[in-house]
């Protein structure tokens, strides 16, 4: 029963921060809300008995992908307006709502850990990382290799797209 209430609270936080994220005008504010939504999804994964997926969600999504977004947003914001925008970021109205939503999530996780009730359901069963690893490297080994090829292609593509000389050549053509 408690797990159900925790699930609804986490689901509410997910939806609220997702809606707030896509309606922001400032990209960095939207990213703050996105982090809260991703953490709430990690809580839901935990409640569903997938602790490994919850950890991966935090490490890869909230830790790596959002930071990548943030780097690009910071790179593109270089200008006179960025200082004023940075100052506006620190006013109270902007950080209170994400902080409140994150505090709700924190309370949910603490409650779930203290009560220890999250796996008392009739069919609830923690799916251990060991099982996932065994399935990943026996049944899905081809998919793992395909994912590796995909990541290599993305690495080469991102390196090529991020290079500066593509622009320089275009400027040379325009000037000549």
């Amino acid at each position: 029963m408690t797990a159900l209430i925790l699930f609804y609270v986490a689901g509410f936080v997910t939806l609220a921060s997702a809606i707030l994220a896509i309606t922001r005008t400032n990209a960095s504010h939207a990213l703050i809300y996105m982090v809260v939504a991703l953490l709430a999804i990690a809580v839901i994964f935990f409640l569903l008995g997938s602790p490994f997926a919850a950890a991966l969600q935090i490490v890869v999504y909230a830790g790596a992908i959002v930071v990548l977004f943030l780097f690009v947003v910071m790179m593109l914001n270089l200008g006179k307006s960025s200082v004023a925008r940075e100052r506006a970021l620190l006013t109270r109205g902007i950080w209170t709502v994400p902080t409140l939503l994150a505090l709700v999530l924190f309370a949910v996780v603490v409650f779930a850990l203290v009560s220890g009730d999250h796996e008392s359901g009739a069919q609830a069963r923690m799916i251990e990382p060991k099982e996932v690893g065994i399935a990943l490297y026996t049944k899905y080994v081809l998919a793992v290799e395909l994912a590796g090829v995909l990541l290599l292609a993305a690495l080469v593509g991102a390196y090529h797209l991020g290079r500066r000389y593509l622009l320089d050549r275009r400027e040379e053509e325009e000037s000549s």
Partner: peptide, 21 residues
Amino acid sequence: QPDGQVMFMLILAIAASEVAV
């Protein structure tokens, strides 16, 4: 079954490469 989490990891790999490009 652990298959759901395996699929989650593949989605994670796809999302990471999509975001990079």
